[in-house]
Design a protein around this nucleic acid. Sequence first.
DNA 1: TGAATGATCACG
DNA 2: GTGATCATTCAT
Length: 201
Amino acid sequence: MKRRRGRQKRLRGKFYNRPTSQVAKGLLGKFLVRQIGKKKLVGKIVETEAYVGFKDKASHASRGKTERNKVMFGGTGKAYVYFTYGMHWLLNVVTERKGFPAAVLIRALEPKREQFGNLDIKKLRGLGSGPARLTKWMGIDGDFNGEDLVRSKRLWIEDRGEKIKTSQIMAARRVGVEYAGAWKDKKWRFYLKGNALVSKK
DNA sequence: TGAATGATCACG
DNA sequence: GTGATCATTCAT
């Protein structure tokens, strides 16, 4: 039996070094891969949010560089992982040029069918639907802060040839940023239309 | 709707 | 040092 191969392409720096909303939309339909020893956890990205620049009041970077957010100011394609609410880890991918703080929050994954075809939708949501759920599922914590997704052997994003049409991409207000003044109404959350793993409608 | 739960940030 | 806040989730 021949193994089909060669269709999976890891995303490179060029993909991430673009305007953040474009990257956020571009990540929909790509696959987040977590390699743990010989095991792989794979989930399709179905929901993202863009956090852009110094002015975005919803962004951690709006009040300048700090110990926590410094990865956002560094190179593109790095993971920005932070702890919040005293119990949750959230995963972002850093975008745009060095020195300009911007990132895409990964909000929901659709666990790959081959691994989880026997689970009902409720259990799949428990794994991948929500930014803190997916990090818990994949075992992503502060140790991954600054991880280079272009080179890492344990975490990356790849293109598996799935094509997403513009008409499938929905834009909405971001979640949990009511404090952000006028910026709370920016439609910088993107998700795949009709997908059951999206965290909020 | 509210509790859980602790790092981070602004302030002084 | 201290107190308020928080890019969430789960149980009530």
